[in-house]
């Protein structure tokens, strides 16, 4: 191998080579990959072997390999526990709300921005709409807290104007799918609409000219040209988002709910990701590493199947789109 490295680079037409032999330049390229590949191996691949924990009863003193095998009992425990349906339902239903209303909101914003003639105005508005994207979930949780705080919050003050008594939002689980959906849209609508807006900028303007000649008004133009042009993109993005429906945004569900307001909100806000974290942190139960690994593995596998399936689906819709 070392001898190949000594082959002079000058004698090669590196770009158009068809030879099987590896050239110096090949080795140089491989060597560039080395550190990144190694890092990925350490931080991504080694933990993958750790999923055997899901089939073990982890004991600190025995380590991963030494701990006894317990078969599928961790999974069994999870399936039989009463949180199972709660987690699956909460994760999927909340994500479903985010996807549907998120897409509607960002589509409306993009289409209306597109109708706006002044470039300066468009830019200013876009900047403001994107601002929440730069904030961490912790800061967002402070804002939500300022609004929803039962004693001092802005929302209860507003409700008081209408004679409605103080509501302790952090102990009302059924309000939270709505609160979280609004929060999620608030944070993401600016960035999400950018993609649609960019796609609208690519519409062939002759279509609009033709529509104008035919006497179409703005509304007809939107219905017949603008919306149809967005259909493939919306389809793809929706499909891809459905691929991730088993993964919850941990920051949103953990900080914004104030850690599920210490249990009061679990009914609607406990999702797979927060459950894994809480069970992991609350390690007093002893067996929790095996259990959390099992839940994590389940999420990972189902997530992977979903991504592959939805990606195949998106390729059927449009060959050029799709994740891979």
């Amino acid at each position: 191998m070392a001898s190949k490295q000594n082959v002079s680079a000058k004698s090669m037409t590196t770009l158009s080579r068809k030879k099987r032999k590896l050239t110096t330049s090949d080795w140089q390229l491989y060597s560039l990959c080395l550190i990144p590949v190694l890092l990925v191996f350490i931080f991504n691949y080694i933990p993958m072997f750790g999923v055997i924990l899901a089939f073990k009863n982890y004991k600190f003193n025995l380590g991963i390999l030494g701990s006894p095998w317990v078969g599928f009992s961790n999974f069994e425990f999870f399936f039989k526990s009463n949180v199972f349906t709660q987690l699956i339902w909460n994760t999927i239903s909340n994500n479903f709300l985010f996807i549907v209303f998120g897409i509607i909101a960002s589509l409306i914003v993009a289409i209306l921005l597109f109708e706006l003639k002044s470039r300066n105005a468009t830019k200013t508005f876009q900047t403001m709409l994107i601002t929440p994207h730069f904030m961490s979930w912790v800061i967002v949780s402070y804002m939500v807290y300022a609004i929803l705080n039962p004693n001092y919050g802005y929302l209860n003050q507003l409700l008081a104007l209408f004679g409605i008594e103080k509501i302790d939002w952090y102990s009302k689980p059924y309000a939270w799918p709505v609160i979280l959906t609004i929060t999620s849209i608030w944070k993401n609508v600016g960035m999400d609409s950018v993609v649609y807006y960019a796609s609208l900028m690519g519409i062939d303007t002759s279509l609009f000219e033709a529509a104008e000649v035919d006497g179409a008004n703005k509304f007809q133009r939107t219905i017949h040209i603008v919306l149809p042009s967005l259909v493939p993109l919306v389809t793809i993005l929706t499909i891809l988002k459905i691929g991730g429906i088993f993964r919850a945004d941990f920051g949103l569900f953990y900080t914004v709910t104030q850690d599920g307001a210490s249990g009061n909100l679990y009914e609607t806000t406990n999702v797979i990701d927060t459950y894994i974290f809480r069970t992991f942190k609350d390690n007093a139960t002893g067996n929790s590493y095996g259990l959390t690994s099992a839940v994590g593995l389940l999420q990972s596998v189902v997530g992977m199947i979903l991504v592959i399936a939805t990606n195949a689906l998106s390729k059927k819709v449009d060959k050029d789109l799709g994740l891979f």
Partner: peptide, 9 residues
């Protein structure tokens, strides 16, 4: 597509 998850990491 796939990761080891919280505990193994």
């Amino acid at each position: 597509l796939f990761n080891g998850g919280l505990v193994p990491t």
